[in-house]
Design a binder for these strands. Structure first.
Lengths: 203, 203
DNA sequence: GTCTATAATTAGATAGAC
DNA sequence: GTCTATCTAATTATAGAC
């Protein structure tokens, strides 16, 4: 049947570069603000290639979203498996710390959630159904186990408290630097933020 | 000198309508995503009028930002003055609840902070210097007084934890509805969220 | 002051050479 | 596969009639 040629590999690499450039561009400027010409330029490729590999800007956006959320999922799963402590509260804290560390390393995710979540458009619906709901279900499950189960009607509130408290400082890192003088992207700041959030949510 | 004519009043009302439409449009779509034609259309006015009243899209954006942050400031000051409890911790909680209520009523503010704070552009710098820093200074002052003063290097973290935890659920209300079934814009949900945030931050 | 008409850019998508 | 050239539509800002 099909044979993987050198040309196929080169094309796959080009496609990858475009997706990575798209992740950055969409996170920085949003769907409308990012232009396919700019994305192609960042990837060192031609604008026509975007049409060739992805057909439309919308499909390119979906490929970028797949990449962002796929990375989060594998990262969280890896850490969950390697947890060593027995105390359920300390385990919950470590999970929160890991979530904060990911938010620091990948502010794109939070920016994309805000960008699309604020309106009820098709991209938001696709994002929720495809990527956010599986993660939210996991959050609900671990919250139920971890704390002996509190009023489940509070879970949506806790979810958005956790997400907002963990991510905002990294999503607006340039603002944080100018406003407070603190660079939230240093490792020390990330660990401090992780500890603050973990201790507030699991006292 | 100058006399306020009926025509002046009409012009002032037109200007106001344009500013209000701009607040909505910029919050929904960001600076790039919002078009002056759309803003004029929402205001029931002509696109040429934006140039007449504001010269550029950038100046219109500044007028919209002035309006958003001006409303927050007057709202918070009014509530601070009317506080009745003596217990400093309960006073701090009431302040947080009021912040959450404002975030619920005006998700535009949070959306604008994210939209501009994520890059280091001129609009972010103007926004921080003009509107955010005075509010942050007030936050630092009241945090020092309220809790007998903790490590001040943690203040930036607490600030962004408070802002993110309070605002995210309302900033992405359509997503919240689809993901969890909860409509965060109902009064009951707002009060629940206010209580959750206040109790987490001031146990 | 408010409007219409339009100039100058820039966008996403297409066609076709190589 | 990758590129250049181009089409159509939408953008901000301007010019000028009323």
């Amino acid at each position: 049947m099909s044979v993987v040629t050198r040309r196929d590999e080169q094309a796959a690499r080009t496609r990858e570069r475009i997706v990575e450039a798209a992740v950055d561009a969409f996170a920085e400027r949003g769907f409308r603000g990012a232009s396919t010409r700019d994305i192609a330029s960042r990837a060192g490729a031609n604008q026509g290639l975007i049409t060739y590999h992805f057909r439309t800007k919308d499909e390119l956006w979906r490929a970028a979203a797949d990449r962002i959320f796929g990375m989060l999922r594998t990262s969280l799963i890896a850490r969950l498996a390697s947890s060593e402590t027995e105390d359920p509260r300390e385990r919950a804290r470590e999970q929160i710390r890991e979530y904060v560390r990911y938010a620091a390393a990948h502010p794109e995710l939070f920016r994309m959630m805000i960008e699309e979540g604020k309106d009820g458009g098709e991209r938001m619906q696709w994002l929720v159904d495809t990527h956010v709901r599986p993660m939210y279900d996991e959050f609900v499950r671990s919250a139920d186990l971890g704390d002996g189960g509190f009023d489940s009607s509070l879970l949506p509130h806790f979810h958005y408290v956790l997400a907002g408290a963990s991510s905002l400082i990294f999503a607006v890192a340039p603002e944080c630097r100018r406003l407070t003088g603190l660079d939230p992207e240093t490792e020390a700041a990330v660990e401090t933020h992780a500890e603050v959030v973990a201790r507030l949510l699991v006292p």
